[in-house]
């Protein structure tokens, strides 16, 4: 059945597409857009201030790279996002495990957490500024809060998705609590946990930009905000591209883990 599906899909792409190596298929759309964009700019079809040509943006990126400005902004942004993501997802994992495993923890903690989850993150910004100012602490706290919920919700779901039939087996072979957790519950919940991590990476980026635009003196978000004030649209685009590239890379890293750790899964692979 699986083989049939696989066979059918591999024949589907058109003949033109099959001449390009499969690894490059993801590049077709962005490259085409860049070409059209560059062409439009060269023919002066769009305003250079509103939509600078790709070549100009790339030139600007190299200039910022050359004088170290870009790396400095990226460094501080990666630090904030990284620490915030690490703290938030670790807390999400721990709390998700405890509410997932224990009825008591579920009854006492989950309702409050679900209520907090429904508060739009951005409505907390004024409060955070009032309480903690605009320093690193409030930024990292906001990012971790954003990264917390996707991991929390999905860890909980993953644990509650463990098959009862397998738990019965662990009862017969008398797994200890630790063996049950490390050999059955976590592996079984892993697909959900990894999904949570991917979603939470996305949220971490989102909150990072908000945090950096609400007031900062460094960071890619600040760089964008600052460039907008001086109508340096090309720098705005450099900043946006950084988010796109680093975001994609971090997502690919988690997907690589998925590939490694979830090899055992027997699911449709397209």
């Amino acid at each position: 059945m699986n083989k049939q599906l696989a066979g059918r899909t591999s024949e589907r792409p058109g003949a033109a597409l099959s001449r390009i190596p499969a690894a490059l298929h993801g590049w077709i759309v962005p490259v085409a857009i860049l070409l059209i964009w560059q062409l439009a700019a060269a023919l002066h079809l769009v305003s250079a201030t509103l939509l600078p040509a790709p070549s100009q943006i790339i030139g600007q990126a190299f200039r910022l790279l050359g004088n170290g400005e870009l790396l400095q902004h990226m460094g501080i942004s990666l630090y904030r996002a990284g620490v915030g993501f690490a703290l938030g997802s670790a807390a999400g994992l721990l709390l998700g495990l405890s509410t997932g495993l224990g009825k008591l923890a579920e009854r006492t903690l989950d309702p409050s957490l679900q209520m907090l989850r429904m508060i739009p993150m951005l409505s907390l910004v004024p409060l955070f500024i009032l309480w903690f100012g605009v320093g690193e602490f409030s930024k990292i706290l906001m990012i971790s809060l954003g990264a917390f919920f996707p991991v929390y919700v999905n860890t909980f779901l993953g644990i509650r998705g463990v098959e009862l039939k397998l738990l019965e087996v662990t009862g017969i072979y008398q797994f200890t609590r630790w063996q049950l957790l490390s050999r059955v519950i976590i592996p079984s919940a892993l697909p959900n946990i990894l999904l949570g991590l991917r979603l939470s990476l996305g949220t971490a980026w989102l909150v990072l930009v908000v945090a950096e635009m609400m007031g900062a003196s460094a960071g890619v978000g600040y760089m964008i905000q600052d460039a907008r004030a001086y109508s340096q649209t090309d720098i705005v685009f450099v900043g946006i591209s950084i988010f796109a590239i680093v975001g994609k890379l971090s997502d690919s890293a988690v997907r690589l883990l998925e590939k490694r750790w979830l090899r055992w899964r027997d699911t449709y692979k397209g």
């Binding site: 019965e168 050999r183 592996p187 079984s188 892993l190 055992w264 027997d266």
Partner: peptide, 9 residues
């Protein structure tokens, strides 16, 4: 059991 109930991972 009637089903093998192996750990898929």
């Amino acid at each position: 059991f009637q089903e093998p109930r192996l750990f898929p991972w």
